[in-house]
Amino acid sequence: MEYQWPLVIFTVLAGGAGWLLFFTALNELTGTITLTKVRDTALPIAIVMLIAGGISSALHLSHPERMMGALAHPTMGIFTEALFVGLCVLVSVVFMIMVRREASTKALKAVAVVTLILGLVLNLMLGYSYMMASRPEWDTLLLPLAYFGTASILGATVYQLIAVLRKVDEKGIAHTGWNTMVMGVLAGITAFAYAIASGALAGTETVHSTTLRGISLSDVAVGGLGGSTAVLLWVGVLLCGAVIPVLCGFLIKRKPEKAVWVAVIAVVSALLGCGAFRCFMWAAGIASINMFQML
């Protein structure tokens, strides 16, 4: 299936924002890094990412002017995605206002717990929406888990870059390097597990192929070690989305004082990896029967 760029961009930005909120909230609860500097930058960045993602998803629609109709028809999928994006924006704004008004530590920790949970649930929902029996490669719980995992590295690297740019202490920057390493491993494992479960690594799948007038069972390429999605998987998803960020995290953990360019490379690489996984999913999503070939 063709890449649906608005949806790729939406899930990358919203997923990354969800994890950025997670790390911000987690730090609020644990207090590892000098809080005010990173938190004050991370929250507005997360809001911008969520709104930009939402706008991108609207570009996928032919009639965005009718979008509000979704509010009257709650379903699992697009409605829940929109709901959690909205809730994440809302809780981020509340978080920012509470910080500005110097709310009590207990109140901040409470809102941090809500933010943390919403960031994680949003990430699961982004992938869950694509689970459907008509696309066997998507119909596995490993898909939302891979969405979850591959976005985690983007959130971790953006959080790391903010910490570096805001010049938090070396202990704090080293801690973000550790976060990045862990999330890079999570991204790699979840993406690779999905690639195996989806059959994309197997190389071919038997589907009903249609010509103008004929329909027959045939094997079609869905990837494989040397197939059409191999570059996306190995270079995009695993190298850019896992290996390079892990190496960057390692370098930052060892030399926090010289971290700016390494942190920038980590974000760019994670962004590419996160997007590559979503493109990989679209490329692998072949309908078992697609009579009219309209999609």
Partner: peptide, 26 residues
């Protein structure tokens, strides 16, 4: 009148028997 043209139903149809009206974009 209510279709937003997200094509989610076309993805979910197990048989690909939904059509895209290019004029009305529904």
């Amino acid at each position: 009148e209510v279709c937003i043209g997200c094509k989610y139903c076309m993805m979910a149809c197990p048989y690909g028997v939904r059509s895209w009206n290019t004029d009305e974009k529904v």
